[in-house]
């Protein structure tokens, strides 16, 4: 009997809940210690465009879902990662981690998702407010998601860094287009398979692989992207993105890589960075009519 030939996996991109190949048809082979770890799509400008269209069309339904529902779906993501723990650990090891570090990264990743899942129905309770005003109005402020967020995810932390970017963005109802680690893309692509089977509606998270130099500028200039999260504060794109963002006043949020494992990364202000405040002036008959003091 002839020797069996292994089937090598082709890692595809994730747009609108589907797994297309890149429109460009190009591939690259990231290497660890000199040997290639997979065939990865080199996404193009048009993949960015398609991903933003998918994210925009998913926004209305996702932001309109109940906070409770979003919370459940995030929790489901954590469950699915748990189920694929062995695969994630294996891929982290292929990407050059030690077994011990890989296990720690996957565990922290799962905990991180659960942490942010909890904020879905609490963020407005904590950060929304009833405001004292001197006129006959009931005045209150609510936080709303910003819209489509572009993410330039961590280059070095390919799973924990990635999940710590995505969760605080989508938990409030934003949708996102994510560039995952260029040199360590395996976990990111596997995460997209998790997302596809976790009840996350198609288009809420779109995952692109490839050379960031080619694609990030198109995201920065895109008029339909409302905010950008740059995971790495030392990123080469920091200045150029700030300039490109001017046209439609994108919000640029820069993360702090060194905090990834600390509980500094578990705080709700990351969630509010991607939210906008809407204040409503609701006319009432008499101020303090109910006898309350606000």
């Amino acid at each position: 009997m002839s020797e069996r030939i292994n089937v090598l996996k082709t890692y595809k991109i994730f747009i609108g809940g589907k797994f297309p190949r890149t429109e460009s048809g190009r591939y690259y082979q990231p290497k660890v210690n000199g040997s290639p770890i997979g065939n990865i799509c080199l996404s193009s400008r048009k993949d960015v465009r398609n991903a933003v269209v998918a994210a925009r069309s998913a926004f209305e339904k996702w932001s309109g879902a109940t906070a409770y529902n979003r919370s459940q779906i995030l929790y489901r993501i954590a469950e699915m990662i748990e189920g694929r723990k062995a695969q994630f650990i294996e891929e982290l090891i292929i990407q050059g981690e030690t077994k011990k570090a890989a296990e720690k990264e996957v565990d922290t990743t799962i905990d991180r998702v659960i942490y942010f899942a909890g904020w879905a129905d609490k963020i407005n309770q904590v950060f929304g407010s009833v405001n004292p005003v001197a006129t006959s109005h009931f005045n209150f402020s609510m936080l709303e998601p910003t819209g489509v967020v572009g993410v330039v995810s961590s280059e070095s932390s390919s799973l924990l860094g990635l999940i710590s970017s995505i969760c605080p963005i989508i938990v409030s109802g934003n949708t996102c287009v994510v560039f995952i680690s260029e040199s360590k893309p395996l976990c990111g692509v596997t995460l997209s398979e998790v997302l596809a089977t976790s009840d996350v509606p198609g288009g809420v998270v779109n995952i692109l692989t490839g050379k960031r130099k080619e694609t990030v500028p198109h995201l920065g200039k895109h008029m339909d992207v409302n905010a950008i999260y740059l995971a790495d504060s030392a990123s080469e794109f920091k200045e150029s993105l700030r300039l490109d963002a001017v046209d439609n006043l994108k919000r640029i949020v820069v993360g702090k890589e060194s905090d990834l494992y600390s509980n500094k990364f578990e705080n709700p202000y990351i969630v509010t960075s991607f939210m906008e405040t809407k204040t409503t002036w609701h006319p009432i008959e008499i101020i303090s009519g109910s006898g309350s003091g606000y």
Partner: peptide, 9 residues
Amino acid sequence: TGSYQSANY
């Protein structure tokens, strides 16, 4: 302009 547009504008 070279930039992808948004229906908002």
